[in-house]
Design a protein around this nucleic acid. Structure first.
Length: 285
DNA sequence: CGCCAGGCTTCTA
DNA sequence: TAGAAGCATGGC
């Protein structure tokens, strides 16, 4: 087993925090690979968005990634974890590339990182994602934040579970989320009441964590796996959607290679991108 | 217009 | 217990 942690050097400046990018980290690949839905590409190529109740503008050039407006405190308390910067993606990529098919997928977007999002936002995002397309998922989430999230000064936090728990599903009709609205309210009530402890899912044995999430109506195997992977840092979780099902049938009929299993969720992200945007695919979304 | 979308619940045999 | 229908809505 490869060691997959290391110390990332960062440079604090008065205007924000700068990260060297000799390590695998491509902003566009990471923020537009379908794992997070609140980052918007600006005309100059930078990304703006809100995570963890913090607004940030992030840009990348040849040598660095710059988190504009992030204080050293913000960085240490949130962004370092959000971008999973203490995980050695170089080592993980090397491990994945022991399999020639995985190598092809990795090579296609080697700068993807799996974000460590907040569990509640990840759970809601992927409840909304079911039988849905990415542009519409983004729209629904934007309306959800604008309508029920805290005003951070023209941008909006993701709504608290307590806020949504007080609503009736019909109150969410402006979301145009369809049948998913009642899933959101139901999930909010389970979380707000303490029946589902999202923080505990980070350390609970996986099967117990899955079972806990699936108490929530609308959470099946795929959404549970997404909440655990993207929201709880459980990188061994492996969400299977239509694209990954296709990938498994065509690329790995005998199952995922052993070298990918400790980081199945990260492998999954490379495969998801590869299947959607890979060779032979036309542009979509 | 018809098919599909980072699926799940519910109904049916 | 497996398989199919129904689901809200809109992107393409």
């Amino acid at each position: 087993m490869v060691s997959a942690t290391f110390e990332l050097p960062v440079e604090n400046t008065p205007r924000g925090v700068r990260l060297p990018v000799s390590w695998a980290f491509d902003l566009e690949q990471t923020l537009e690979c379908g794992q997070a839905f609140r980052w918007e590409r600006q005309p100059d190529g930078a990304y703006t968005g809100v995570a963890g109740k913090r607004f940030c503008r992030i840009s990348q050039d040849e040598t660095s990634i710059f988190l504009e407006g992030a204080s050293p405190d913000d960085f240490e308390r949130f962004w370092r974890g959000y971008f999973d910067l203490d995980r050695d993606y170089g080592a993980i990529r090397s491990a994945l590339c022991q399999d020639p098919v995985m190598e092809k997928a990795v090579r296609h977007a080697p700068g993807i990182r799996v974000l460590r999002q907040e569990p509640w936002e990840a759970l809601c995002s992927f409840l909304i994602s079911q039988n849905n397309n990415i542009p519409r998922i983004k729209g629904i989430i934007a309306r959800l934040c604008r309508g029920w999230g805290a005003d951070l000064g023209g941008v909006y936090a993701f709504p608290e579970p307590e806020t949504l728990a007080r609503l009736a599903p019909e109150d969410l009709s402006p979301l145009q989320a369809g049948y998913r609205a009642r899933y959101l309210v139901g999930a909010a009530r389970e979380v707000a009441s303490g029946a589902v402890d999202l923080e505990a899912l980070k350390t609970l044995p996986l099967e117990e964590a899955r079972a806990s999430l699936r108490r929530i109506t609308g959470v099946g195997p795929k959404v549970a796996e997404c909440a655990l992977l993207y929201g709880c840092g459980r990188v061994e979780c492996f969400p299977v959607d239509v694209w990954i099902a296709r990938a498994m049938k065509t690329l790995f009929p005998d199952g995922l290679p052993e070298c990918a299993k400790p980081w199945a969720g990260i492998a999954q992200q490379y495969l998801f991108h590869y299947m959607r945007r890979g060779p032979g695919k036309t542009q979509e979304n």
